[in-house]
């Protein structure tokens, strides 16, 4: 402990400089120090916590740097080799997706069900974008989207088993899968989807899954929906 003669205050910190006026501090006698501690209490120092912050920031920045370098390299190679087909756009979308995916999982603090739902939705969007860049036929609608819905159902099932105490938290995700299936049927009716096999499988899985839960666990489902839909 020292004393700032300019500010006329005692400074607990282990320093020679006043944090307020930056003047050099004066020593305090042992008696005076004892009196101040007895009056105001002893010092309560803080740990140095900057290293942890630096590490996380550095990792994300390093990743961003590597991705930008990779994409720049991809653009150059693309333009030099196959300038008529811009596959570098695909790598750009892919890298952006991976970066945002990691950022979302590391930084965002929503629950697993929200994260899974968001990632499935984003993966669907990614597939559609890639498909649009490459052009017809709409393989993303016919195969990837139903595939993602089946994957979503499987993940919901696994998570319901893993977190049995909170299995009902995933009901909304299940409802989302059914809604996605309905949307695919609309696209089928509009003629965007030709092959019906995977569409039937994903709709059946989602529908039956939701039906089983709604019939055999009706009370829990009601409670969960009441919570989720409270106005």
């Amino acid at each position: 402990m020292n004393r700032c003669e300019n500010c006329n205050i005692y400074i607990y910190d282990d320093t020679e400089i006043c944090p307020l006026c930056h003047s050099i501090l004066a020593d305090v006698s042992e008696d005076e120090k004892e009196r101040v501690i007895e009056t105001y209490g002893d010092e309560a120092p803080y740990p140095d916590v900057t290293e942890g912050i630096k590490r996380v920031n550095f990792a994300m920045r390093l990743l961003l740097f590597i991705f930008i370098l990779t994409e720049v390299a991809a653009v150059i190679v693309n333009l030099l080799t196959t300038p008529k087909f811009l596959w570098c756009l695909l790598s750009l979308v892919g890298l952006a997706y991976i970066f945002l995916f990691l950022r979302h999982w590391i930084k965002h603090d929503s629950g697993y069900s929200a994260k899974i739902g968001f990632q499935i939705f984003m993966s669907m969007v990614l597939m559609v974008i890639i498909n649009v860049v490459i052009g017809k036929p709409y393989w993303s609608l016919e195969w990837c989207l139903p595939g993602m819905i089946i994957l979503g159902d499987v993940l919901v099932f696994i998570f319901m088993l893993l977190y049995r105490e909170n299995w009902f938290s995933y009901i909304l995700l299940l409802v989302l899968m059914v809604i996605c299936s309905v949307i695919l049927w609309v696209l089928f009716a509009l003629g965007f989807i030709k092959s019906i096999i995977l569409l039937i499988i994903c709709s059946a899985i989602s529908g039956v899954f939701l039906l089983v839960v709604a019939i055999f666990k009706d009370r829990e489902v009601k409670r969960e929906l009441k919570r989720r839909f409270h106005v």
């Binding site: 500010c7 005692y10 400074i11 607990y12 307020l20 009056t39 120092p45």
Partner: peptide, 29 residues
């Protein structure tokens, strides 16, 4: 910058109040 805190504590000190200050150390880095 700590000039607002400096002025604040100085004003109170000038009113006859004894003050002891402690920081979390970041002002010295």
């Amino acid at each position: 910058d700590t000039s607002i805190q400096k002025r604040f504590f100085k004003l109170i000190e000038q009113d006859g109040v004894e003050i002891a200050v402690e920081t979390n150390g970041v002002y010295y880095e």
